[in-house]
């Protein structure tokens, strides 16, 4: 059971959050200029690392804000959380 520090609200139980996948995937600005493979890369391809992972969470049952976390996908430890637009 994770304990996650929402950058706005502080430490809360995992059940208050919902997971939103890999972070820092910017939506391409001019999507029509991408070829199918490039679009597929944005749409589907994921790093899915075993180890440090930057990911998005939503404090769904709290402040309703998305934020980023750097979490280890093996020991599940959250190294840091930070607001969207910030660097960890």
């Amino acid at each position: 059971m994770l304990l996650i520090e929402c950058p706005y609200c502080g430490e809360r139980d995992e059940t208050e959050f919902s997971y939103a996948g890999e972070a820092h995937i910017a939506r391409p600005l001019e999507t029509e200029k991408l070829n199918d493979a490039e679009w597929a890369d944005y749409l589907f391809m994921r790093k899915n690392p075993k180890g440090a992972h930057r990911e998005q969470w939503l404090h769904a049952a709290g402040c309703r804000r998305y934020f980023n976390a750097e979490r280890d996908t093996v020991n599940y430890k959250v190294k840091s959380t930070y607001k969207i637009g910030e660097q960890s």
Binding site: S18, A20, A26, R27, Q56, L58, A60, R64, R65, Y66, I84, G85
Partner: peptide, 13 residues
């Protein structure tokens, strides 16, 4: 709602 919040907060703040 979560979907729209996500675009607003993470992509087009």
């Amino acid at each position: 709602l979560a979907w729209m919040e996500r675009w607003l907060q993470t992509e087009w703040p």
